[in-house]
Amino acid sequence: MGHVDSSNLHKVEDLWYEDGTIILIAGTVAFCVHKGVLVALSPIFRDILALPKSPNNDTMEGRVVAHITDSGFDMTNFLRAVFRPGYKSLVRDTQQVSFPELASILRMAHKYDVPEAVAIAVDRLSQRFCAPFHTSLGRQVDWDDVQKHLDTAHASVAFDPADAFEALNLMRRINAATGPPRFPDRALAVALFYCCVAVEQNPRLVRSGAPRADGTVEELSDADLERCVRGTALLRQEVYDGVSRALMAFQDGYGVFKHQIKCPRQNGCQEDIKIHLAYVQLTECERTWGRGSVRDVWVWVAKRQPAPGLFGAEAWQKWMCGPCKKKFEQLLEESMVKGWDLFVANMSVSD
């Protein structure tokens, strides 16, 4: 106990107030902030900072020092949300924030019992972790467009699939707290989907785990690892099944809607669909989907890598008239949404 040497500490400049009344040290990171703000904000901080005046207290630059066990990264993001300009600013979706920053804020707000900040962070993450089929995103896009939309235009939370383990574990930790679950099943399912993408990109994550921004390694539970393995197989199969369902729906419903959409070829488009369903789709697509990515379940068929030759831009015009092409695109969209709903149901994410 006594004077703390500051030479080995990093003072966070924008969280070092000259009129601050207490110094917090997290690892090698130091903050000089206002004790009264933290005490009013959090009952946990109130207890931690209820330090009786004593010559045995650690001090630094004439102020009492409180040592906390959190990482400097987490505490920096949390205190910035509290003091600059306040966590309520996170309500505004137009203010972009990175997932690691928002995860830090949620983790600290949960630990230090700041319910309003928890609610705001949960709402923001829940918006980001939604299937793009339930947003205003146009579906005829590639993977980069899907991600850009969700990162910027939708909830403005920039997310890298490499952070998926942290996201899923954090959601489960919050849901395990007292009271009803805060994150809906669809958000957990999207986080699990991203875990599948991350493992596909780097299979070593299954054994080594994935590091957070502060270096802490996140590992999935055995149950979620099993879901990840099973989910990868389901997603790959769905890339194929989604197209197959749409082709079947077109063939089966053609006799009803051909007059409504005014197909100029009458039965010609239906006959072409039968040929492709019986031969091209069930051979080329079945062979191709295994070489694709689990992320293709969110990607428009013609934009997939590799894309089945059947769905190239020129191929559309060769085997389907304009009205039928539009109808088939509608059926394909509906099938993609159904496929995602089947994934959510089969994963039993809340069990």
Results as ranks from 00 to 15, higher is better:
L51A: 10
A50E: 10
R84Q: 11
V37Y: 08
T21D: 12
L90P: 03
V82K: 12
S89H: 08
L79R: 05
L102I: 13
I23W: 08
L102D: 14
R80I: 04
R84D: 09
K88T: 15
E101L: 06
V91W: 01
S42V: 07
S89N: 14
Q96K: 12
R80N: 09
V37F: 07
A50N: 09
L38A: 05
F45T: 00
S98D: 10
V97Y: 11
A66Y: 02
T28S: 12
K88R: 15
L41F: 03
F83K: 13
Q95N: 11
A40D: 13
K88Q: 12
E101T: 15
K88S: 11
I68V: 14
T59C: 03
V97W: 13
S89I: 14
F45L: 00
A30G: 01
S54V: 02
N77T: 12
V97H: 08
V91L: 02
T94M: 09
H67D: 15
D74P: 07
H67G: 14
V29D: 09
D47M: 04
D70G: 11
V39H: 11
V33C: 00
M75D: 01
V33G: 01
D74N: 03
G36T: 05
L24I: 05
V33Y: 01
V65Y: 04
F78S: 14
G72P: 07
H34R: 11
L79W: 08
L41H: 01
I44C: 07
S71Q: 01
S42M: 02
P52Q: 13
K35M: 09
V29F: 03
M60W: 07
R46M: 04
I23P: 05
K35S: 13
V91N: 14
N77D: 15
V29C: 09
Q95V: 06
V33T: 07
